[in-house]
């Protein structure tokens, strides 16, 4: 079987069905608000958001593989690039930048400059410990786990994801 050429995030995104980002943003906001009301503790909310993201990630990887035709990434550098340029782009319509590599090449940050999740959002003082975009972490974690890459992740801020191998 001839190898199929990998498709760019842009090409996949523009050929996919899309919805208004505001509906997405406001729905996410509704979820976070509901979690804060139900769970009360921001740490619990962070955990739940991460869990939701994880659930999404393990399912989303199928669509990612089916549509992108990417072959197995040879190293962590390539993996990070693919997540940033193809993964984020095909689902959220925006790409991330991979930066902050450490000397061993086992840690890096993905920075989303234009994050649709945070439009209209301002956290009150009472929610300062909240990692508003923690769901993205979970998504990346879930998706990577399905293709068996070792990692550990932390969020620094809402648009900043750190991946460690």
């Amino acid at each position: 079987m001839p190898a199929v050429a990998p498709r760019s995030g842009e090409a996949i995104f523009s050929s996919a069905e899309r919805v208004n980002a505001e509906l997405f943003t406001l729905t996410y906001g509704a979820i976070v608000r509901q979690l804060i009301t139900d769970l009360e503790e921001v740490d619990e909310v962070n955990k739940q958001l991460d869990q939701m993201g994880y659930n999404i990630g393990v399912r989303l990887i199928d669509e990612f593989l089916a549509k992108s035709n990417v072959s197995r990434c040879v190293d962590f550098k390539e993996t990070a690039e693919v997540i940033a340029k193809v993964g984020f782009k095909m689902f959220l319509g925006v790409s991330a930048t991979v930066t902050n590599w450490d000397a061993e090449g086992t840690t890096c940050s993905l920075v989303l400059e234009d994050n649709p999740l945070v439009d209209f959002v301002e956290l009150p003082d009472t929610c300062q410990g909240l990692h508003y975009c923690n769901v993205l972490n979970g998504v990346v974690r879930g998706a990577l786990e399905m293709v068996s890459t070792c990692y550990l992740m932390l969020v620094l801020s809402s648009c900043h994801i750190i991946i460690l191998v």
Partner: peptide, 8 residues
């Protein structure tokens, strides 16, 4: 701005 339907 748009996001993919699957993301939603």
């Amino acid at each position: 701005q748009e996001v993919s339907l699957s993301a939603f």
